[in-house]
Each structure stands twice: as structure tokens, then as C-alpha cells.
Design a protein around this nucleic acid. Structure first.
Length: 335
DNA sequence: AAATGTCACAACCGCCGCCAA
DNA sequence: GTTGGCGGCGGTTGTGACATT
């Protein structure tokens, strides 16, 4: 015997809210608080169910809601939190002041999820799309030994393979000699793919103080990063060096090894130097268009708002392009 | 200019967990 | 221990705005 839907009663209005209804709801809650949502609509003179009122208030009318596009920092945070919490939108929203779970959920489904898919990353697992190329089994197989590499085995699954991932795989297989480069790349690009990568568990994350998170991605350096905070809290082993910290940023994290950037790119503003400025790499610095950030929500000029989504894509493409290492092991000719 | 397709987001639906009776 | 009310959550849908043909 299931419970009757709360909007089952006839006469209750559904659909978009009118400004008049909004005003009634705002006026009532400002005077009396929401109290019992069940009784609120009647007391406020609204022909809505309590659940509808609650949703309207929490997702739209609440005064502390931050409207407007998501900043790059917010997007980065969402991705990292999602990699740990999954689709627990309310938990993610709790760490993004002014954002609602519904808003984050929508933004994830319409923006972030698509971008990750385009990058060949599974938005559920935050790992490379193993449905396209099962890298883990590849690495655990004799194929992992480059001397025994049997490229022909790849041919049978070529139609399933994302070319970018295949390049990554070939890079992995061929670069044991260049272990440092390879490990650094993969750990930065696909952190959750690395075996024994010390990902945070939910409990650890939930106990982290959101205030400790850096407010400005431009200053997201290795000693000021949340990873550093986590490291201090014991969430990350202390022997994890800065450039090995497993941040799930997929190529545009601000602490990414600058050597990842295509050195041939004429648009790249990054410098492949080892000076201390590397520690302060800003995503903004790789954007060819200045961020005007018209949104009043973030006054910091270093924030990137979502109007630069295409630029993020281009940047991600650069990252993936870098994985197209030429002829280390070019299996494409077999395809 | 009209038709069609795509995208973004507000709102709804159904389920779940908590809690009081 | 059981039941039902309630708030909250996540998945899904409906629709208006915008882009493309």
C-alpha cells in the first residue's frame, strides 16, 4: 500500500510558477518561515502542493542562491567531488555555497558530462572509457611487456577503441624506458586509472572543511591546493609528490605539469620552464581570450566563467593532442 | 521566413530514510 | 515492531529559447 502522491488532490496547480505565486511564497516564508511544507501552501494561499513549494523555494526563490554561470573553479570542484561522491548532488551542493543540487545536476548533465565523454572519459567512473578500450586488462596482460607486444591483438577491437586512448595505451606500452614521463602524464590525466591511487573516500571528504579549499584557481599551487590540505589531513600519503597528486581534472587542472601542454602550440602562453611560476599555473593563462567575466557573482578577474567552455574544450583537446606521441609505436598503420 | 533540431533548465515523479505515534 | 507522515533526494520530463537548415 503505497503512499498517495502529495499532488494527487484535484485542484492543485502544476507547471511553471507565476510571479504572483512566487511573491506569495516569498512573503509567507519571510514572515513565518516555511514550517511544515505540507501546510504551507494552504496558509500562504497557494494552490500548490507542499513539495512543489519546497522545490520552488529551495531551487529558485531562496535569497542565498547564486544565479548565473558556473565559474571554472566551481566546475573544477564539481568534477572532483563527483569523482568521489558520485551522483550525490545534495552532498556536492553542500560544498558549493549558493548552488542547488538541481542546478548542479543540470549543469553536470548538460555540460560536464558531455565534455568528459568527448574526452573519452567515463563520467560515471571518471576513468578512461574502458568500454572503448579496456586498458586495465591490457596492462595486466602480456601486452604490457612491450617486447611481447602483439599489435595484431588490438586489431580485433579496433572498432571499439577511442583513438586517443589507443595512443595513450601505446604510449604506456612503449615508454617504460621513459617511465617518468609516462607515469606523470597518466597520473595527471587519468588519476583514477592508476592502480593504488589513493583516492579519498567519502568520509574523508565530508570531514574536510570546505573553507580550506582555495578560492582562487589561479593560485592553486602545489602547496596551497586542496590536495595539499588533504595530504596534511592524512588523506593522501605524504610520499605523494606534488605532481603525483591525483586530482581529477582531466587535463585542465591548474596544478598540471606544464610539460603536458603542447609545446608547439602557438597559442600556448605556458612556458616550459622550471621556475617557481610553474607552481602557480593558471588555467586562465592558457586562454587566448581574456576573461571578462561579466557575471556579478564572481568579481575576481581570474575566474573563468562558462562562456569559455569552448576554450576549455580546446585546451582539453590540446592535452589529448599531446598524447598523440609520434611514432613511438604507431599502430594506426595497422588499422 | 518557416520548419526543424538542439540545448538548457525548471519542475515533476517516485522512491527512500527518518521519526513519531 | 509496525505504520504512516513528512522531508529530501536523484532521475526524468516538458518546454521555451536559440541555432541551423
Amino acid at each position: 500500500m503505497g503512499r498517495a502522491p502529495c499532488c494527487e488532490k484535484n485542484g492543485l496547480k502544476k507547471g511553471p510558477w507565476t510571479p504572483e505565486e512566487d511573491q506569495k511564497l516569498i512573503d509567507y516564508i519571510q514572515k513565518h518561515g516555511h514550517g511544515s511544507w505540507r501546510t504551507l501552501p494552504k496558509n500562504a494561499g497557494l494552490e500548490r502542493c507542499g513539495k512543489s513549494c519546497r522545490l520552488r523555494w529551495t531551487n529558485y526563490l531562496r535569497p542565498d542562491i547564486k544565479r548565473g554561470k558556473f565559474s571554472f573553479e566551481e566546475e573544477e570542484t564539481i568534477i572532483q567531488l563527483h569523482s568521489i561522491l558520485g551522483n550525490k548532488w545534495s552532498a556536492i551542493a553542500a560544498r558549493l555555497p549558493g548552488r542547488t543540487d538541481n542546478e548542479i545536476k543540470n549543469y553536470w548533465n548538460t555540460h560536464i558530462r558531455k565534455r568528459l565523454l568527448r574526452m573519452g572519459i567515463d563520467p560515471v567512473t571518471h576513468s578512461p572509457r574502458l568500454d572503448l578500450l579496456d586498458l586495465s586488462s591490457l596492462l595486466n596482460s602480456p601486452l604490457y611487456n612491450p617486447s611481447q607486444l602483439n599489435v595484431s591483438r588490438l586489431l580485433g577491437i579496433q572498432h571499439l577503441i577511442n583513438p586517443k586512448l589507443l595512443n595513450l595505451a601505446t604510449n604506456l606500452l612503449s615508454s617504460q624506458e621513459n617511465n617518468q614521463l609516462c607515469n606523470s602524464q597518466v597520473q595527471t590525466q587519468f588519476p583514477s586509472f592508476i592502480p593504488n591511487s589513493p583516492l579519498l573516500n567519502e568520509t574523508q571528504l565530508l570531514h574536510a572543511n570546505v573553507d580550506q579549499f582555495p578560492s582562487n584557481p589561479a593560485s592553486f599551487n602545489c602547496h596551497d591546493s586542496q590536495a595539499s590540505v588533504w595530504q596534511e589531513s592524512g588523506a593522501i600519503p605524504s610520499n605523494f609528490t606534488d605532481n603525483q597528486i591525483p586530482l581529477s581534472n582531466y587535463g585542465y587542472n591548474s596544478s598540471a605539469d606544464q610539460s603536458m601542454v603542447d609545446p608547439l602550440s602557438e597559442n600556448s602562453n605556458l612556458q616550459s620552464t622550471n621556475d617557481s611560476s610553474n607552481q602557480n599555473f593558471s588555467f586562465a593563462s592558457v586562454l587566448s581570450t581574456p576573461s571578462s567575466s561579466p557575471t556579478p557573482l564572481n568579481s575576481s578577474p581570474t575566474y573563468i566563467n562558462s562562456s569559455t567552455e569552448d576554450e576549455m574544450d580546446r585546451y582539453c583537446s590540446k592535452m589529448l593532442k599531446y598524447l598523440d606521441l609520434p611514432d613511438l609505436l604507431d599502430v594506426s598503420e595497422f588499422m
